[in-house]
Structures are given as C-alpha cells and as structure tokens.
C-alpha cells in the first residue's frame, strides 16, 4: 500500500483552468476525501491520479515513484465509478476476475480469490449472476470487489454512493469503511456530500473552482475553517462580513463582538450550536437582545432564527428531556456568542 503525492498539478480544459495548482499528500492507509461542489475539479483530480486524464503541469507520485507519464493500465490503482461500470457482457464472477485474468493468474487461484472477495463484500454465491439482475447496492459491491482484488496500491472511489437511495447509502458508507479498514488500503474518496465526508474520512481536502481550500481532519475542518467557503460548505454556520480593530469585530457598523487576541480577517463565523439562548439577561460578554423571527423543529434539535439589529442569527438548541427552553415566536430573548467559538476568516 502506498502513499500518494501530488505536486503542483495544473489542468486546463479548453480555455478553462480546471485545476489551478494542487499539492497534496495522502498517507499510506489513509481514507482521504476530496470534497466540493460540482465542477470544483475533484473528480478530474481523481482521474488524473488514475491516469485517465492528462495534466498539463505538475507531478504525480505513488510510493515515491513518479507515475505522471505512466498510462492508466500500468498504474496500480483500483477505481470504482459512479455508475459502477460493470461489464454487461460478463457475469459477476467474470467481472471480478477480469483484472486477475489479465495478469495471467492461474484459473484455480482466480477461483479461490474471487470466492473470498465475494465473501468479503457479502455476495457469496453470486458468481454466475448476470449483472443486469443485480440491485444498485449489489452492483456497487461487485464494483468494489473487482477493484480491490488485484491488490492495487490505491483505491479510488468516484462518488460511489450518489446513485443509491438514502437508507442504502448509509448502509454502504459503513460497508465501504469496514472494507477499507480490513484491507488497510490507501483510499481516495470523492463526494459532494459533506456529511458523508465528515463521517467517513481520516482527512478531507475541500475544493472550490480548481483550488484546494483546506486540508485537514474532519473535526479540524469543522471547528477551524480557514476561509468563508469552507465555513459555509462544511456544516451550517452564521457568517458575517466584519471590520476588525483592536480585537473588536464590527458588523454593519452597529454590532460589536469581542474577539480573542490577535485575530485578523474580513469575516467571522460561529456555528449555530455554539450560540447560547436564554430569557434573563446574564451580562456576559457578546450578549445581545434579539427577537425570534422563526422556529423550526428538526426532531433532535430546535432551530431559532433571530433578528439582531439588521442581521439574522441562526441558533440550534438540543431538544432533550432536560432542555425545555420552549421559546415562542416573536419573543424577545438574549443570546451569547462566546469568544472561543468565533472563527475569524
């Protein structure tokens, strides 16, 4: 299993710069996710690693070796496609055995290996099924087995869960994660779904318009977004333009927030669950009187949209047996924005 290093990757498509200057390191055995909205370049980058697209500048290293000019079939990568790309003219067995057959592995070995991998993806006995008879989830598992049976150095997954319905998606998330752990294979996962990325990844790289906006572990990215794009894309947040002077963030010239020392930036972001909301004034720092405009019941949480002077603030409160803060629409209440929870971007 190898590590992947991308250095200064640049890709132009027609006259559009699809990837601007990407440098990334994916460690051995890591579950690494490329996250971003459609068109951000994440799939292109994945295909460059696979050798299916040619980049204009930069290098791709696998296990320390420069594979930039190696053709796709010579690279030791396995890939699962969004539409699974199972060969319709072959059975499940033949699909999975395809890569091994090309390597010249002998029949008996192939048979045994295919059987064990079918087992691994919980499809024992499916050998002779025609792939057109398989459900979405089953097809995906065959695609997975097919791509890892050749024991590649890296496994690439291109939005494999997008075509599945919600319940199946959750189930497959777990299965993929388990498989990856079992095989310990370096994996790069592409998705536009931030909750998927947060729940599955060891590390996430967020992309926007061909740029890598931030790289880090899920918790890190969530708690410490480096720019407003990341703050908005990953999780919900309250984001405001500010002028900062003397550790004070001024919103719209009429709201002053006290910040931790030495922060500089143009925006601040604070998560809805970090803001406190209560009836009686407590005289805390960054405490404001607000009016409740709208209340949304989300099951485990209650969301309050409040008006503070001329900005809106979103607040989440956990809905449990001990937290009965049932406020009413139109009520005037107090909110507190802790200094520690404010991210300056």
């Amino acid at each position: 299993m190898g590590e992947v290093l991308l250095k200064n990757i640049r890709k132009i498509y027609g006259n559009k710069e699809v990837l601007k200057d990407i440098t990334l390191k994916i460690n051995k055995g890591e579950f690494f996710t490329f996250l971003g909205p459609s068109g951000c370049g994440k799939t292109t980058l994945l295909r460059i690693i696979a050798g299916l697209e040619i980049h204009q500048k930069g290098k791709v290293y696998l296990k320390g070796e420069d594979i930039s000019h190696l053709s796709a079939e010579k690279r030791k990568v396995g890939m699962v496609f969004q539409n699974y790309a199972l060969f319709p003219n072959m059975t499940v067995f033949e699909n999975i055995a395809y890569g091994l057959k090309l390597k010249g592995v002998n029949k008996k070995k192939i048979k045994n290996k295919v059987k064990s991998y079918l087992n691994l993806v919980n499809l024992s006995g499916y050998d002779n099924r025609n792939i057109t008879q398989l459900s979405g989830g089953e097809q995906q598992r065959v695609a997975l087995a097919r791509s890892v049976i050749t024991e590649p150095e890296v496994l690439l997954l291109d939005e494999p869960l997008s075509n599945l319905d919600a319940r199946l998606r959750d189930k497959m998330r777990l299965e993929i994660k388990e498989l990856q752990k079992k095989l310990g294979i370096t994996t790069i996962f592409v998705t536009h779904d931030q909750s998927e990325a947060l729940s599955m990844s060891d590390k996430i790289a967020i992309f926007n318009m061909g740029n890598c906006m931030q790289v880090g572990a899920p918790v890190d990215i969530y708690r410490n977004p480096k720019n407003s794009f990341v703050a908005k894309f990953v999780g919900e947040t309250n984001l405001y333009d500010v002028n900062i002077s003397n550790n004070d963030a001024i919103i719209n010239e009429n709201i002053i927030l006290k910040l931790k020392d030495g922060k500089k930036g143009n925006h601040i972001s604070i998560r809805p669950q970090d803001i406190m909301i209560y009836r009686k004034k407590k005289n805390l720092v960054n405490e404001f009187k607000v009016n409740i405009l709208d209340i949304q019941f989300n099951g485990a949480t209650i969301e309050y949209i409040c008006k503070l002077k001329n900005i809106k603030v979103k607040i989440w409160v956990l809905n449990n047996t001990f937290n009965h803060n049932a406020f009413n629409n139109g009520e005037n209440v107090f909110i507190h924005l802790p200094k520690e929870s404010i991210n300056v971007l």
Binding site: L52, A72, E73, K74, A85, F87, P88, Y98, R146
Partner: peptide, 27 residues
C-alpha cells in the same frame, strides 16, 4: 457503450488491444 466501461477496463490493467477485444467488440 459507456465510456466509463473503457475507463474501468484501463484501470484494471487492460491494454488497448485487450480492452477492444474483451469489452468493446463483444458489447
């Protein structure tokens, strides 16, 4: 013939000749 089938064949290690022979022509 979906292009991704050709891509998949490539990533599984098939040369152009093999992809043509085993995937494209039969389909």
């Amino acid at each position: 013939l979906n292009n991704t089938l050709i891509d998949a064949s490539k990533t599984l290690g098939a040369s152009w000749k093999n992809t043509f022979k085993k995937i494209i022509i039969p389909i």
